[in-house]
């Protein structure tokens, strides 16, 4: 059964179109929603929670119509907003108990579920201290806990890794994986970083300017977007030689697809393990120094520029 279905979903504000005929079908699992700031992610979440009406089109969450069954949806769905939403002067336990009761759990069940949920997201003794003293990582865990405390069937996580350091980011992504793998709760997680969602999600939906850019399983995505960034030095014996251009030619001759990204970095599509060897050989043959060779952490803007570049070449 689909968790989220939207059909021609459109949301127009007086000045902007936030969502433009968006049609997606989200299956159970961890689904990433990727888009730059202002791409329409938050608007989509608001509509899915039944809090804002769509201008056109329909959407169903867990089989319920967002336009008429908002209340029933909000009983079964958890939501973690992007921004700060925690009062600093109460403890995590007090706050999550309160939110559990707001979800309709009786007082005793609310306390029990709060203790369970806070343990699952990794908050232990500190849960009795006021939230004001928590680190960003701990606050994000409290926000996740309040979204899970009523045992929803689906959670909507808006930029859960925002503001976290790399370790905190990995912890949060691991936790999100567990929400589905161990708790059996479907997840829709938004981010503007495609790279981190590739590792976490089963399926990724990319939207831009409210339009669906791409919706595919993570495996497909990785194939298309795995890139190797290569940067080389000038040739010492012949400083006038354009080594980038020479390397591009050499790589093309070796059967690789590569292009300059505007700076000194060349982006090479990874076809398999042998790509690394081919690049190394081409650089060695040219006799230049290799400054870097690294797998790219894709930023969403690259996917866009790639698509636009592809479209342009298609038109030419």
């Amino acid at each position: 059964m689909s968790v989220i279905i939207t059909d021609n979903l459109t949301k127009r504000f007086p000045r902007v179109t936030a969502l433009d005929r968006l049609t997606v079908d989200v299956q159970p699992g961890v689904v990433g929603l990727v888009g730059a700031n202002g791409a329409g992610k938050s608007t989509l979440i608001k509509i899915l929670l039944g809090l804002a009406p769509a201008t056109e089109g329909t959407a169903r969450v867990l089989g319920l119509d967002v336009a008429t069954e908002g209340g029933a949806i909000r009983e079964r769905v958890g939501y973690m907003p992007e921004h700060d939403c925690l009062p600093p002067d109460v403890s995590a336990t007090e706050f999550v108990v309160h939110m559990a009761r707001m979800s309709g759990l009786p007082a005793s069940a609310a306390r029990e579920r709060t203790a369970d949920t806070l343990r699952h997201v990794g908050l232990y003794e500190e849960r009795y201290r006021p939230i004001g003293g928590y680190s960003t990582g701990m606050k994000q865990r409290v926000k996740l806990a309040q979204a899970l405390v009523h045992d929803p069937q689906l959670v909507l996580l808006d930029e859960p890794t925002n503001g976290l350091d790399p370790v905190g980011r990995d912890d949060m992504l691991g936790l999100i994986r567990r929400v589905h793998a161990e708790f059996g709760i479907s997840v829709l997680v938004t981010s503007h970083l495609l790279g981190e969602l590739e590792r976490t999600c089963d399926h990724v939906v990319v939207i831009d300017g409210g339009r669906l850019l791409r919706s595919s399983s993570t495996a497909d995505f990785t194939q298309v977007t795995q890139l190797l960034a290569v940067e080389v030095t000038d040739k010492q014996s012949d400083p006038t030689l354009d080594t980038d251009k020479a390397l591009l030619e050499a790589l093309a001759a070796a059967g690789l697809t590569a292009k300059a990204d505007g700076g000194r970095v060349l982006l090479v599509e990874i076809k398999g393990e042998e790509t690394y060897d081919l690049v190394r050989d081409a650089v060695a043959d040219l006799g230049v120094g290799l400054v870097r060779m690294e797998q790219r952490r894709h930023h969403i803007s690259e996917v866009f520029s790639y698509d636009q570049a592809e479209e342009e070449t298609a038109h030419v």
Binding site: L51, G71, P81, S103, Q146
Partner: peptide, 17 residues
């Protein structure tokens, strides 16, 4: 408090209107 700490979206993402 609810306005300042932006807690309202948490209430309204629940059945409460």
């Amino acid at each position: 408090r609810d306005l300042r700490f932006m807690t309202l979206p948490l209430y309204f993402s629940r059945p409460l209107t």
